[in-house]
Amino acid sequence: MQLRTRTKILPIVLLAAGLAWIFLSADRSGTLAGGRPPAPQEGFPAPDFTLATTTGREVTLSELRGQVALVNFWATWCPPCRSEMAAIQEVYDRYMERGFVVLAVNATRQDTLSSIAPFTDEFGLTFPIPLDVSGAVERLYEVKSLPTSFFIDAAGVIREVVIGGPMSEALLQSIVEGLLE
């Protein structure tokens, strides 16, 4: 009889303890949702950087706040980078007027400067190409393979990280559409 009562009570006690734990461990102070340091990870503010572009102009990521940004790390020798550039240009042309910007950061430390201009001419790239000569931005974004792309929303928070490629036009469009809505 005692055992029967215990087996009936135990599940109720466990479920009540579970409920209590849910309320005790709730994030009421908002520490999880806000106050995250910049980091190259989904849900974190994008680390800021300033780089000179191929045209000599300086571009700073934080100055693009309010727009949806794609930060794409690439090099001319990298086949998937070549394969996805046309799609990036296509989507850039389609959404530029709605506030979509592309920063195609060239991993210049592992590329040759002289091969960049023929590459951009070949694909007719019209978005800014910042040159990461020292590799500092690559390290800041913990880029382990090329291409790597970070999709950043209007508030400057990374919403999607795509490692490797090539990215299809469908992927680019679906992510950008979602962020612009």
């Binding site: 799609a87 795509v162 299809s168 036009e169 469908a170 992927l171 469009q173 559409e177």
Partner: peptide, 24 residues
């Protein structure tokens, strides 16, 4: 399901259905 949820993107790029992108 992803394609149905982003129909417009896949109508513009039907080959995206067989893309190797795991994010799709």
């Amino acid at each position: 399901t992803y394609a149905l949820l982003h129909l417009e993107a896949f109508l513009a790029d039907p080959l995206g259905l067989v893309s190797l992108n795991l994010e799709l």
